[in-house]
């Protein structure tokens, strides 16, 4: 067991866990931030995607001891304000993307990171950035359209 001070969604939070604990389980079990999902534990599905210093990362593959002072953002921390969602979340709602919904927070985190570094991605760039995120329900066409819509809404 060891104590870790984590900077999550702009707040300092502390946990006392085994240093090998993946960030995913720290978020879910210890900080009750359950929007970050467990899908495979092998970095193969993208359901656990969070941001580390703004870059998309599979939280199931990152031991909490490797986080240090780097800033973590989870789905719970991306809304524009307490009452307004992020433009990517809004696009997801407008295009009614979700079916079961389980993978969608991970999809959104990958999409937000993509648009941050590339506000106007081509179709091929979207596919490349998103291909690590599996949607078993097959909502890929809507996800792509939502990313394009969010890109338009933020760059106009």
């Amino acid at each position: 067991m060891a104590k870790f001070q984590l900077k999550i969604n702009g707040k300092q939070l502390s946990v006392d866990v085994d240093p090998s604990t993946p960030l995913l389980w720290v978020l879910r079990d210890h900080l009750h931030l359950v929007g970050t999902k467990y899908g495979c534990g092998a970095g193969a599905c993208g359901a656990c995607t969070v941001h580390l210093n703004g870059n998309a990362l599979r939280s199931c593959q990152l031991p909490v001891s490797a986080v240090g002072t780097q800033a973590i953002t989870t789905i719970e921390g991306i809304a524009t304000s307490e009452t307004e969602m992020h433009p990517v979340q809004k696009a997801w709602l407008e295009l009614d993307v979700a079916q079961c919904g389980y993978c969608q927070t991970g999809q959104i985190m990958s999409a937000v990171a993509l648009l941050k570094r590339n506000p106007n991605p081509t179709e091929a760039e979207i596919e490349a950035a998103m291909t690590g995120n599996i949607c078993r329900c097959g909502t890929y066409i809507r996800i792509k359209a939502a990313i394009q819509k969010a890109a338009k809404s933020t760059t106009k």
Binding site: C40, G41, A42, G43, A44, I126, T131, N133, I134, Y140
Partner: peptide, 18 residues
């Protein structure tokens, strides 16, 4: 045994249009 070798269709393999 896991999604690294059980293949599920991914973004770039999905059609452009349905």
């Amino acid at each position: 045994k896991n999604l690294n070798n059980y293949r599920i269709i991914r973004h770039r393999e999905a059609p452009k249009k349905i």
